[in-house]
Amino acid sequence: MIGRILRDVPRRTLVLLACFFAVLAAVPFIAGDYVLTILILILYFAYTGQAWNILMGFTGYLSLGHALFTGLGAYSAASLFVHFGVAPWLGLLAAIPIAMAVAGLMGFLAFRFRVSGVYFAILTIAFAEFARIGFDHFAWVSGSSGLFLPVAQYAHNDLWRLRGNPMMFYYIILVATALAFLISYLLLRSRTGYFWLAIREDEQAARATGIDTFRYKMMAVMISAGMTSFGGVFYAFYYNNLFPEQVFHIARSIEIILAPMVGGIGTLFGPIVGAFVLETASEGLRVILEAFGIDVPGIKQVFWGFVLLAIVIALPEGVWPWIARRLGLKERGP
């Protein structure tokens, strides 16, 4: 597998990637907790964006309800931890199958009845909203009063139980983002990846080319959901509190899709680049506003709105394809 990657990927891309991850791996040695917390947020959105991209970018099905899967992941692992002391890594064994099962149900309903386009997006919103309202009344996870994880001292890191300081969380999400990138790359270059692209491009033609579109769409939505659920587990143990009203809120779903939209939907680097562009820009804006003593609630959302507008107008393909052309890199397929 490694041999194939070394052969298939242009030398320039490999060098760039290695440098990029090397710099990120070195960051905790030079930067403080403030920079780390921002980077954690960036990588979290890069990770979840990469997972979302499998469904939208590769297969062409727009999900506006991916908070459903982060939420299910978060609640599965956190409730097992709170109630039974089950470590999050073991909790993943419940979180991922639960997210995949729900995605399977949603996918079955959608694809069995040929729901696509905007109607599919509405269905994903509906599922996330069901979960939001359902969890509000789900007493075992404390309903709307919220589920709280015991907060540990920052002094010692417990990697197994995910209790510790930002540096530990940073390395976990960094490794996860790198893995998500690798998985997306391998999937895209596989038979499954080609079939997904075919479905995205023209579903009728894909069927006429012998592709069992139902099966491959089910795979896409379930893999995407399973990957996304890990983001939720991470979110739960990083923030230590979960409220259905927040976790499953449509704003969380929209946040997940912003990074790949800005970076370039359907590209491998798009979610990562988009997450960096969005977060550094909004953090920069916050710093500037603070310096001038301006306090406007919701300014971040308004700013993101403008960034999105600007990018949709100026770079409809996203930032990454534009950067890639400048760097002389070519990513196959859009």
């Binding site: 038979r191 080609y194 079939f195 692209l197 075919a198 491009e201 023209d202 009728q204 033609a205 894909a206 006429a208 080319t209 012998g210 592709i211 196959r332 397929g333 859009p334």
Partner: peptide, 25 residues
């Protein structure tokens, strides 16, 4: 195998990848 009266290639894919989809079957 079939073609469509109104052509339906996979527009954003390269010519080679279009044919790859068929070949992978």
């Amino acid at each position: 195998g079939r073609t469509f009266q109104i052509v339906k290639p996979f527009p954003a894919l390269s010519v080679e990848d279009n044919v790859m989809v068929g070949a992978l079957l």
